[in-house]
Design a protein around this nucleic acid. Structure first.
Length: 198
DNA sequence: TATACGATCACCT
DNA sequence: GGTGATCGTATAC
């Protein structure tokens, strides 16, 4: 199967479907003349204004506006004053939703990632949402970038397939404040993959 | 203008 | 198991 890049129509669908289908796909990053890539092994779905864990739960604000926009855009924000989180906007316009990319299995450019992360340990490079942004040099400068057309940051399908039986789910991480929404099993990950976050 | 806190991580015990 | 780092954002005043 030929390598295929994902366009906007892939992202403009039900967030949970997009989240599950992103598992096994490759996140590609071109930076500093380097070609970096990692296979997506863990994601989380954040869906709508009724989802109390979603940043858009309190409606449109300057920060959340991007999630109300067209699918395929990057939603990147600074968390805890020091780390970035990378999401891809999903669903139709005016439906605030996104998939948080939580962990990658490094594929290409591990040397650069190790330099960014200041560690040689491969399992410490991209096994968490803050870690993978640091490894791939993704910062909020890229907030709003179009994943469907960007040459610097995009998703491709290299033919690798994750079977349904190998997809596990659990409650999302770090959203205990979200009441009943914190219990939704909207975290999806590749079963038994050692790069899934702890 | 002031305040509280978070979709995390590394390091400590 | 616990905690400090560090700052943009939302909210209250």
């Amino acid at each position: 199967m030929a390598i295929k890049r994902f366009r906007r129509s892939f992202f403009a669908r039900d967030t949970h479907v997009v989240a599950r289908e992103l598992l096994g796909k490759v996140l590609v990053r071109h930076v500093d003349k380097q070609n970096l890539a990692g296979r997506i092994v863990e994601v989380e779905a954040y869906v709508g204004e009724d989802d109390l864990a979603c940043h858009a739960a309190r409606g449109r604000t300057p920060r959340t506006e991007i999630m109300f926009g067209e699918a395929g855009r990057a939603y990147i924000y600074l968390i805890y004053g020091m780390y970035h989180c990378f999401n891809i906007v999903t669903e139709e316009k005016d439906v605030p939703a996104a998939v948080l990319i939580r962990a990658l299995e490094p594929v290409t450019g591990m040397e650069y990632m190790a330099m960014q992360r200041k560690t040689e340990k491969i399992h410490h490079l991209t096994s968490g949402p803050g870690k993978l942004c640091q490894a791939l040099n993704i910062t909020r400068v890229f907030n709003g970038i179009d994943i469907a057309t960007s040459k610097e940051l995009f998703i491709q399908d290299d033919g690798f397939h994750v079977e349904a039986k190998d997809i596990a789910s659990s409650p999302r991480i770090g959203v205990d404040y979200a009441g009943a929404c914190a219990l939704h099993p909207w975290r999806y990950y590749v079963r038994n993959n050692s790069f899934v976050s702890k």
